[in-house]
């Protein structure tokens, strides 16, 4: 048996420090491969800005906003959530593939700490890439429209970015734990996440769609994240900001419960 001093020392030590260590590992992990995790997503988003925002966008006008102005928030959010998703998914996949998932399982990290550390890691990468895309968008905005894009609500921008990052990181955890091969994760990314993101209003307003597709789009949760950020940046949204917040919150709860259940289930939370 441990004496009371030893017991207290261990209990203090294992309270939060394992979470901090795992979170730091996540940040360190994606920063080690920054070309793949940060540089390439930023280049891709810049290409969208050049092709859609500048080349084609000069022919479009949306409720008094230029098309470049319209797609910057969508691209910021698309970069944020896809990077958040990829970060936690690739982290779990590498843990399962390389075998160090065992280290995490046998350590004093709790299920909640594991999930939140992965989620915050994803949020950091999502916000970092989204932030750089925003900076690139600002440069384009200044160059082509001769003025900076002043955010409508910085608090809203931060809140929606964090919420979207958390939701997609946790979704990444769920899907990567469920995946039995690299193919599975590619299929979910390519067949579900990417189409929903494109159909979530990155490049168009709901008003441009037929009534049927307008209604169908309301079932796409990504629409609410994108419109939340669009409202935060340019003050325009297809749905009210309160509804966007409620849907984002609900999506977070669903993904969190899913993540906890998957980590709890040793059938999924194990080495390949």
């Amino acid at each position: 048996m441990l004496n009371s001093t030893q017991l207290k020392s261990i209990q203090t030590r294992i309270k939060w420090l394992p979470f901090i260590a795992f979170f730091r590992r996540e940040i360190h992990r994606f920063s080690k491969v920054f070309i793949q995790t940060i540089f390439i997503p930023v280049i891709n988003s810049s290409m969208y800005l050049i092709i859609f925002g500048v080349s084609l966008g000069s022919r479009l006008d949306l409720e008094g906003f230029s098309y470049l102005e319209f797609i910057i928030p969508g691209l910021v959010m698309m970069s944020c959530l896809s990077n958040a998703f990829q970060n936690s998914a690739s982290s779990i996949l590498s843990l399962k593939f390389a075998g160090d998932i065992v280290d995490v399982r046998v350590s004093p990290l709790t299920i909640q700490q594991t999930l939140w550390a992965l989620a915050f890691g994803g949020v950091c990468r999502g916000i970092l890439v989204g932030g750089v895309v925003l900076v690139v968008g600002e440069l384009f905005h200044f160059y082509y429209l001769d003025r900076w894009l002043i955010p409508h609500s910085i608090g809203g921008l931060f809140a929606f970015s964090v919420l979207a990052g958390l939701v997609f990181s946790k979704m990444g955890v769920v899907i990567a734990l469920w995946a039995k091969t690299f193919d599975h994760i590619g299929a979910v990314g390519g067949l579900v996440i990417t189409p929903l993101t494109y159909l979530g209003g990155v490049f168009f307003s709901l008003e441009m769609l037929s009534p049927f597709w307008q209604k169908a789009s309301l079932f796409n949760p990504i629409l609410y994240f994108i419109n939340g950020v669009r409202w935060s940046l340019i003050g325009m949204s297809d749905v009210t900001v309160v509804v966007s917040l409620i849907v984002s919150g609900l999506a977070l709860v669903v993904c969190h419960v899913g993540g906890v259940l998957m980590i709890k289930n040793s059938q999924y939370y194990r080495r390949w």
Binding site: I14, P18, A21, H28, V104
Partner: peptide, 10 residues
């Protein structure tokens, strides 16, 4: 270093 951190030893 990270493995040690999982056990709260920094």
């Amino acid at each position: 270093y990270y493995h040690s951190g999982y056990y709260g030893c920094f």
